[in-house]
Write a protein that binds this DNA or RNA. Sequence first.
DNA 1: TTGTACGCGTTATCAA
DNA 2: TTGATAACGCGTACAA
Lengths: 346, 346
Amino acid sequence: MKRKITLKQIARELDVSISTVSKALKNSKEISADTIEKVQAFAKLYNYRPNNIALSLKNRQTKTIGVIIPDIVHHFFSKVIRGIETVAAKKGYNVIVGLSNESFNKEVINMEMLANGSIDGFIMSLSKETLKQQDYHHLTETINQGMPIVMFDRIVKDVNCDKVIVDDSKGAKKAVEKLIDLGCKEIGIITTQDYVSVGKLRTKGYLQALNENGLDPNPEIILKVEDRLISEEHLSEIESEIEDLFKKNPKMDAIFAVNEVYAVTALKVARKLNKKIPEDIQVIGFTDGVISRHAIPSLTTVSQHAYQMGAKSAELLIEKIENEDFSEVHQTVIIETELIERESTL
Amino acid sequence: MKRKITLKQIARELDVSISTVSKALKNSKEISADTIEKVQAFAKLYNYRPNNIALSLKNRQTKTIGVIIPDIVHHFFSKVIRGIETVAAKKGYNVIVGLSNESFNKEVINMEMLANGSIDGFIMSLSKETLKQQDYHHLTETINQGMPIVMFDRIVKDVNCDKVIVDDSKGAKKAVEKLIDLGCKEIGIITTQDYVSVGKLRTKGYLQALNENGLDPNPEIILKVEDRLISEEHLSEIESEIEDLFKKNPKMDAIFAVNEVYAVTALKVARKLNKKIPEDIQVIGFTDGVISRHAIPSLTTVSQHAYQMGAKSAELLIEKIENEDFSEVHQTVIIETELIERESTL
DNA sequence: TTGTACGCGTTATCAA
DNA sequence: TTGATAACGCGTACAA
């Protein structure tokens, strides 16, 4: 029930001034050994801790990082957060999380809420709606107010800030090349609508790999799944789109999927149609999460190193926060993807 | 580059006093229409927003909730967070996340860091180490300082605070009864070591179901997996423990697993040993996450309604924060589990 | 060696 | 109708 103790209360109890207490707690040599001991003993007894809010106000920095992501129930994003949190904790920062839920409005509201002094900088990945509307005023405004931002994964070029991305295009290309190496001739892709930047880039890599290897892209086996929230209620609709793809293209001998859910759904459809994996059809997915690891057969995937993306983002942001000098130069860090081979490829 | 604008700056520009500006922005009728208009126009132009930190200091409340969990890369916990965040956002609260990573020390450090004014209350689930050591001084101390705590899932009775749990024992019992109804006679369990409270309770429910149905528990088919971090490097060791279980008990016709990973690993082992699911062995897991949903065959599970647990926790906490009167009465809310039937049972 | 005064940004009370 | 002042909790330059 008792409220936290303050310098003022200690000062009153001990009949000294507030500043004496403050100094004594910091072992200032301005203060006599006697007083120091007395004050520290008392402070310890009452478990005194300076009030973070007061410190924030005084120092004009909160030692906390704001993270805004579209969704937290998502292996990729939660792993990024873990990376952020680890680095943040190491450097004495807290992490405050805002969820946009893929909505532009929630993204804006969350940012405005946090930008008014609650945090020292943002790490964020854009919502689909934001990407679609191409409205980035909330980003540019906070940047103009001198608050650093680091964007990761779902970024946008026009905004002038640090960025951490994966080479989506190259990662996809490597995956498709792997399939080609394994002898596949008719490689299908299950991807998203074009406005999702990462989906577009992965499709680009897919096409590049085909071209450079003298294979003609076949529009019949390029499936751009209609947009809806991944993984929840619409799974069965996605499934039937994929089933169509399989049925109409019996000669297809490989699938590259731009995310886990599409990949594992392909697995499911294949099983339903009595196609053996990897013997009849080989499958590679993008994003290495629990679904891929625990799928049966386990999925070969392109790992984005989500943890490293988070860690790197946090490093960049904290560097900017603590080093005003760097505020003009922005860098884009590319995290290398890695092909993790498992059972869904030969 | 420009720093956020403050009342003081507006006052200086407009050559009025700070308090006049403050009142004008609040449409106080103490202020003349002229002044109000002038001030508001200026404020709008410069996009004035009150500084949250200053408000927190003044109002002695931060409007943010601290959440401490063992791991965020975990479907259950991230779903809880989503529930917390939704309710928090609706009531104007922010969510700050601390990860204990199953370590007692990190849990304590995180709490101390946040307890010094950064937040208005905690929502937390204990780390395994804390459960093991049974040291809860960090909880009781913060409670004594008047900061409300809501514990969920991995709770402990001795601590006097609001709690949100699932009826683990009952949920497990229902699952095992289902298996019995389906004709299973030799139902094995894959569970954790006893100090993990939820594992112990689920095992208890399993035993109850057997007893009440006249089945003798067979210690041979009760596997308490050695403790290690789920899901990461030690998967193959868990797998071989489970494989042993299967091989030594060929008559076993069902498995109840206390979490998703154990359940899906059982699936894998069964496949390896050419046991058909659900024809030869039926499987039910606890915790309804992506792994279960996307497994092939998809897993019948006991859903804990993680989202509701988070939402309820947030409601309880905010009620305590905003209603000092309630601070003495603590309640324990039990969220009903639900059996979600899928392909791994007949 | 200790204390006073000020500032961080805001609001509330009271005085002008 | 407006403004000065105090207070939230802290740290520090400067005065005593």
